[in-house]
Design a protein around this nucleic acid. Sequence first.
DNA 1: AATGCAGCGGAACGTTCCGTTCCGTTCCGG
DNA 2: CCGGAACGGAACGGAACGTTCCGCTGCATT
Lengths: 216, 216
Amino acid sequence: MTEPDVRDVLNGRRAQAARNDGAILAAARTVFVAEPDAPIGAVARAAGVGISALYRRYPSKEALLATLCLDGLRQFVAIGQAAREVADPWEGFVEFLRGIVDADVHSLTVYLAGRFTPTPEHRDLAMQAAALTDGILHRAQQAGAVRDDIESTDLPMIYEQLAAIRLGNAAQIRELRRRYLDLHLAGLRSAASSYGSLTGSAPTQAELGARWNRST
Amino acid sequence: MTEPDVRDVLNGRRAQAARNDGAILAAARTVFVAEPDAPIGAVARAAGVGISALYRRYPSKEALLATLCLDGLRQFVAIGQAAREVADPWEGFVEFLRGIVDADVHSLTVYLAGRFTPTPEHRDLAMQAAALTDGILHRAQQAGAVRDDIESTDLPMIYEQLAAIRLGNAAQIRELRRRYLDLHLAGLRSAASSYGSLTGSAPTQAELGARWNRST
DNA sequence: AATGCAGCGGAACGTTCCGTTCCGTTCCGG
DNA sequence: CCGGAACGGAACGGAACGTTCCGCTGCATT
């Protein structure tokens, strides 16, 4: 039972298993982002493996979704931390939004939330994400770049809108989302507030958090 | 078999049937707008009738959806015609978008499209709707109110984004949609284009029309 | 070379869900 | 008083899906 060095098993049964690990996660990502309640067989087909290769790694569909969502949350935090390092507040803000939208992190987190019972780790990362959003937005607002009547809970709603753009293949979807993110950004600039104030108010954190509870 | 005057049968079996007609359509509207692939039993429950009351009026679920979508298209055209009559081009444009979003016409048309085989009447009304959109947008652009790098196929994408806002009850959804429509409008104003041009290009009419074909 | 078993593909199973049909009942209209 | 229109809801048939299970393959160890 001597564990062989990873570099020594580039082929063979172990190596295929290791490759399947990645292939299954990548396939699951693609499939569930495109169709949040796709059957688990679609993931297996997209990964080019059988169903049992899935169940060897994840005890249930729910566990797979939970893992996927965890990955998405970690990605969200990483993007936020990178954007916080950008010197110019507006540039950092833009890079933040672009990063979230390009990676389609929203489809991996909120869309999947409610389809599994979240762990404390999920909640913890979600709070980190909210804190990052807060900081990046407020910095841009204090610099006078983003209009003041925007709250940090407005941003998830913008992600949600952009995530709803699902026209054509993946490449076209990304292109279209960039286009409409540009439009959102034009509306978010502080000078744009001269066209009139926003009616109503942003959702509360509690209302946003309610989406993590199972419902359907 | 003398058909009695409608005003004479405010109660009785015939009257209940007439009332059910409206109740069923209203319930179907509410239910399917909230959940595009809700079971037909949910509509019956929301209308307070049995399932057979539904099947007496519509031979299948598909027929009910087709009728609902037809209503939505007619509503779209009516809103567009009203907006065209507004003297100020920008005001008309705004009223148009507000009307579509408030009535949630998008959920009744595009969301339902693809779930039934469309009739020539559907296609005809859809073309009228596209023509109206074209006219209202171009008028606002020629008046210098809306930025020039917007095409008429951008507007359905904006509806789609706003229709994706589904947080809380119907009242809160409407309030939130108004808020984010305001944000979109700020980005659409011609002066907002000074913040930078839009990347990519709008979808083509053909790409938008593809959503009417069954897929899932 | 023999052998044990990790890993796998996919058929099979049980369950849930949903559209549609059908039957017994009610009660208006003539 | 009776025929039948309208209705409520149980029953049916089939599709879809998550999960389990079985038989096979081929590497690793002896």
